[in-house]
Design a protein around this nucleic acid. Structure first.
Length: 684
DNA sequence: CTGACCCTTCCCAAG
DNA sequence: GAAGGGTCAG
């Protein structure tokens, strides 16, 4: 497609009638229209970061840069979708071959093309945490480690260690030494398990999330020709949320940026909240050192929040030592009330208050989707969910579990993953473990039979899976189910050709899985509905590999895949963790559970780690800067269900970081007739 | 060998 | 307060 862009063969400013000077402020304009070359944009919360990036893309295209030469890296699918959408609105040019997406999805795209170079095939599976765990457990079993007298770290802990090592660029002993000194005695075995785990992943043609990044870096590092091709392709690279990049992501960017080419990174050090997955603020702080001619742009006008909220934010973050000094200037004018600080009796009262206030605000004309409830940890939303449900307040929640990670979705996917990647031991076993009479041992035997046929590493598909699999000897009890399963697999691959994704899901459900969920789960209907949604989502795909990759890469924040669950007129309040709320904004924000131990998190308080505490404070900063018009900070004074035993809660120490006159303290404690309470006398 | 049941453990955030 | 892990009967 050499597209409409060529209609005007002489690219000229103003061609799209975009008036950059009118639509951007001075600071944004300087960044958007800067000359090619390395650039660092320090953009405070609510300063129009997204706007700056999207206009920059538009500007480049207007200057004659072809979309296919642009790479736009983001942290969430949502952010990438939104930005591309906005660029489309700005420029009358087909941008479908602009590469935009999360680090993981871009890496996935690159790796699908060159997987063979690394010993994988292009149909490799992507492992989620659960898959990783089963794989690593099989590795531990192979390692002959005596866990009797001394406790060996569990799969979860091992994975965290491996991931941290990889994402920070340190080696495993160093991580154990620094963060897990009590496993000192096991270092040798941990390293061994790590090495075998890596080997195993290659063997079963599967990559975990870290591999997607790491192997892309490896590919570019080892293959000069390929590296130069991608460098030439991506003449302009833009990275959003750069403060949250880790070591691997940073080297990836470095490999992609060729000497003179243009890179623009955007970020805000005050919003760095991902150090626990290896994010290193040094990446943004030292950017000017690594790119010698880097221009630094600062965008400090805040368009989002009323001055009262902004003043509180500025004040709250000041307690941190490690930060670029900055003071966001309010662009909006005042007139509204100060943020509310609300002490409640207990979690139930807190939920009651939030629900009550939400309803009142809706009566005042604020739409539900303009309100959000934010919290430190997912489980803190429990009472709110119950209260909203009982009051019929519609809400949407980004839970901890991704759509794809739900057991029934993974079960169905296992069938598809196996036919696509026939080395995928994890999926094969998951699939056959569903049959009654097959346990770990039986599954392993059948897997060995499969490997013995050699079909796992053949390039072509068998015309019929049943021709091969029916010869196997499953346990007697499982025989009937086994046969049924073989015929289901035949439907997924007709004469060597993959069926369409949606019809695969259909075959699996009708062929075997429906019986299983009916018998296994009490919420059969719900689960069946989810699978039907999966089917609908599959309609949008022709290629099964792309479908599976998309499922794995989809995050919780992207919601369920059908995208049609919420009708447009069905507005709802958002319940979200603060991490997932990053980059978003609402008119009204409630930050709940502001007690020591809940937020800041208890472990961090106990550990007395200054850096961790500062990150926690940045998280608080992110939370309150989401609010445009109204902000409510709430906390329960008593937590009867505290398993730590601290019945009486201490208000969050973050609340001491700012002068009390910046908030309005609401007194709503134990009014017996709370439900009838009327806010008529309150300042709102 | 499988699967049910009881007990311990862990409750921080995500692509 | 749930979920994964270990134990033991069938």
């Amino acid at each position: 497609m050499s597209r409409s862009y060529n209609l005007n063969s002489q690219p000229k400013a103003g061609r799209f009638s975009l008036d950059y000077q009118a639509e951007l402020n001075e600071e944004q304009y300087a960044a958007v229209c800067s000359k090619p070359g390395p650039a660092l944009v320090i953009a405070g919360a609510g300063s129009g970061k997204t706007r700056t990036l999207t206009y920059r893309v538009a500007y480049l295209i207007e200057k004659g840069v072809e979309p296919k030469n642009i790479l736009l890296l983001t942290f969430t699918n949502k952010a990438s979708r939104e930005m591309l959408e906005r660029v489309r609105e700005l420029v009358p040019v087909d941008i479908s071959d602009l590469w935009g997406g999360t680090f993981h999805s871009i890496c996935n795209r690159i790796l699908r093309r060159h997987a063979e170079e690394l010993g994988f095939t292009s149909s490799f599976s992507i492992l989620d945490r659960d898959d990783q765990k089963s794989l690593i457990n099989s590795v531990i079993a192979d390692c002959d480690i005596d866990t009797k007298d001394k406790r060996f770290p569990k799969a979860d802990v091992l994975l965290t260690i491996f991931s941290l090592a990889l994402n920070t660029g340190a080696d495993i002993p160093k991580i154990v030494d620094e963060s897990y000194p009590y496993f000192e005695d096991w270092i040798e075995q941990i390293v061994e398990v790590g090495a075998k785990y890596t080997k195993k992943k290659l063997e079963v043609n599967s990559m975990d999330f870290d591999d997607l990044l790491l192997l892309t870096v490896k590919l570019l590092k080892n293959n000069l020709d390929l590296r130069q091709r991608y460098q030439k392709k991506f003449q302009h690279i833009m990275v959003d949320e750069f403060q949250d990049t880790n070591h691997v992501q940073s080297s990836l960017v470095n490999y992609l940026v060729a000497g003179q080419e243009s890179i623009m990174v955007v970020g805000d050090d005050a919003q760095s909240i991902y150090s626990w997955r290896g994010a290193d603020m040094e990446n943004i702080l030292s950017f000017p050192d690594r790119f010698k001619d880097a221009k630094v742009f600062r965008i400090e006008s805040n368009y989002r929040s009323v001055p009262e909220i902004l003043e509180l934010s500025n004040s709250a973050i000041k307690a941190n030592r490690k930060q670029f000094d900055k003071n966001l200037k309010a662009h909006r004018t005042g007139g509204s009330a100060r943020p509310a600080l609300v002490a409640l009796d207990d979690p139930g009262a807190q939920a009651n208050f939030v629900a009550q206030r939400v309803l009142e605000l809706r009566d005042e004309g604020v739409e539900l989707e303009e309100m959000a409830i934010l919290y430190r940890a997912h489980h803190q939303s429990l009472e709110i969910q119950m209260e909203f449900t009982s009051r019929n307040i519609p809400f949407q929640i980004t839970s901890g579990l991704r759509f794809f990670e739900q057991a029934h979705i993974k079960d169905v996917s296992a069938f598809m993953r196996f036919v696509v990647n026939r080395k995928d031991e994890v999926s094969f076993k998951r699939m056959i473990l569903l049959l009654p009479g097959i346990g770990n041992v039986g599954a392993d035997k059948l897997w060995r039979s499969w490997v013995a046929t050699g079909w796992h590493q053949r390039e072509d598909n068998p015309a019929k899976f049943s021709d091969i699999l029916l010869d196997f000897k499953p346990p007697k009890k499982a025989q009937a189910g086994w046969e049924q399963l073989c015929y289901t697999l035949d439907e997924l691959v007709n004469g060597g050709e993959f069926a369409r994704p949606s019809s695969m899901v259909y075959s699996i459900l009708e062929g075997t899985y429906d019986d299983y969920i009916r018998a296994t789960f009490d919420n059969y209907e719900q689960r069946k509905q989810d699978i039907q949604q999966l089917m609908d989502y599959g309609e949008g795909f022709d290629d099964i590999m792309e479908f599976l990759a998309q499922l794995s890469l989809m995050s919780t924040a992207d919601g369920d895949p059908s995208g049609k669950k919420e009708q447009p007129d069905d507005e709802s309040v958002v319940l979200s963790s603060i991490h997932q709320a990053k980059g978003l904004e609402w008119k009204v924000v409630f930050v709940i559970w502001l007690t020591d131990g809940m937020f800041p998190n208890g472990r961090i308080l106990d550990a007395d780690d200054q850096d961790a505490m500062e990150e926690e404070r940045r998280l608080f900063y992110v939370a309150i800067t989401r609010a445009k018009d109204e902000l409510y900070l709430t906390y329960p004074m008593i937590n009867p269900k505290s398993y730590r035993g601290d019945l009486v809660q201490t208000p969050s120490s973050f609340l001491d970081d700012f002068p009390r006159e910046l908030v309005e303290e609401w007194n709503v404690s134990s009014a017996p007739s709370w439900d009838d309470h009327d806010f008529g006398d309150d300042p709102f």
